[in-house]
Amino acid sequence: MKNNTSNIVLPNFSESPRIDKVGVEERVAKFQKRSIKSETKIQGLKMALSMIDLTTLEGKDTPGKVKQMCYKAQHVHDVFSELPKVAAVCVYPSMVDVAVKAVAGSGVKVASVSTAFPSGQAPLAVKLADTKFAVSKGADEIDMVISRGKFLSGEYNFVFDEIAAIKEACGKARLKVILETGELVTLDNVRRASDIAMYAGADFIKTSTGKIQPAATMQVTYVMLEAIRDFMDTTGIKVGMKPAGGISNSKLALHNLVMVNEVLGAGWLNNGWFRFGASSLANDVLMQIVKAETGVYQSSNYFSID
């Protein structure tokens, strides 16, 4: 799959498709009615587990906390065999080297937020330095935030150029672009920001930082999935999707998987192309899997803290 946007004709982002909010809500409501039971459910839950980016993004993060989370990423619930590892751990740049050491050889990727996460209010030079630092410490993936202030004041070229510059700084690392949809106000804006991010070279588009509410609502994720499909149809380039923030239970995760399958197809149903950014989702999924296997409702007392 080529991933080079240099010879693609750029559309006028002011003319990104308008979104019919009522239509989106109706469509989303349909995804929530799909019945997923027994073996299908277990399979779906295991898939969701393998797509989680286990995340800790707090001012109080310490190397110890990050190591503990990295352990959990590789041993989600050892009592139960045949559980997949999570896809990645997501940390601040200062914790990348700790995380890289802790997950070495396990196949779990290290993602680092960057570009003055979560506000993105820093000069480009600082953002580039932030990104290069994370990459130099061994981050496999970079989660950048867009400049929402610039976007909302209509400076789409500024936002585009910034993403393109960060993409260049990433080198081999995959770039996830966080739109922070909770600050974009309208679905029209979500669609436009998605288009800008993808044409500027995003490997993934991601809903939220997790610091702002609302975060990854199904409506927002749906609009972004449609944008990915249209981008694929126009350019032939495949882009991944990562809803983040607010997906705290298994049911919501399964609804999201249904949505991905029905909008983009099974090609996106793996952790190369779809991720959940979440911290509390993993335990809920685990509890549901154990419930499905044992028939007994579970308690968080018997699962490791994440």
């Binding site: 028939g295 007994v296 409702y297 579970q298 308690s299 968080s300 007392n301 018997y302």
Partner: peptide
């Protein structure tokens, strides 16, 4: 049954 088996 579901109440008494509930781990929580």
């Amino acid at each position: 049954k579901p109440l008494t088996t509930h781990m929580d």
